[in-house]
Amino acid sequence: MAVIAEPRTDAAVPRVRPRSPLLAYGRHALMPLLVGAALLALYLYVSGHELDRIERRSLNTEYLTSRIFDHLGLTLLTTALILLVAIPAGILLTRPWARRWASPILVIANIGQALPSLGLIVLLAVSFETLGVNQIAIIAFLAYGILPVLRNTIAGLQQVDRSVIESARGMGMTRGAVLRRIELPLAVPVILAGVRTALVITVGTVALATFVGAGGLGDVINNGINSSRDLVLLSGSVMVAALALLVDWAAGIVEDLLKPRGLS
């Protein structure tokens, strides 16, 4: 034994690079600045015009505020319902006794996704005339936003290392405890990515609520097109885009905050 390898020292082990908080927040700071600048530019542009009667009907504070709150309210309510349905469903579909249903259900959901959102909401509206417009809108948006959350919940739970689960079981954790303390925390990043996607999709589909008269900022765009007022159309479009980008931005921050430490 002439060769004696150098002993490995623990000091040689790379430590996980501490993330510079400045960099992390810098990444998040850009989007609100961009959106803020766009909204300010829009405000200055609109203020520089003398508004006619039709334009004033859409472009007044009271009307816009009510549409924004409509829009946000519908989005949040729909997303809450999506989470309530999709996450438990995703959990169920990854339990051993139901696992075989996961693939067929995802296939069906994928096909459902091919149905255009406009088609779905109009179909519901013309088929169920007795339902209120808000119910129709929520059902349509719900159907549309469930897939990303369901898919990511399943994928997130499936990607948890089997050996981690096995050793948790081996130490005597109950199935419920393994789900709550091991599987779900480790699936959080993937599930949150799905929630973020669903939120953005929902902000977008809620803009189509105007076609069935359920309100939201889509009304402003619609008014602009129908009255051929570019100022109104532009305002509505910029505000919907800004809302989507800000919701995406906020969801991104929540994603970073809720990600368990130690994962990356």
């Binding site: 290392d161 050996s163 981690v164 689960i165 096995e166 050793s167 948790a168 079981r169 081996g170 130490m171 005597g172 954790m173 109950t174 091991i182 925390p185 480790l186 368990p260 430490r261 130690g262 994962l263």
Partner: peptide
């Protein structure tokens, strides 16, 4: 589950909980 809490278990892939600190892992 009660039985397993009385029996130590360690495997090749370690199965350490990646989202928990070393101390939390040992304290399981």
């Amino acid at each position: 589950d009660l039985l397993r809490r009385r029996i130590g278990y360690s495997i090749q892939q370690t199965g350490l909980f990646p989202h928990r600190t070393v101390a939390d892992n040992i304290a399981t």
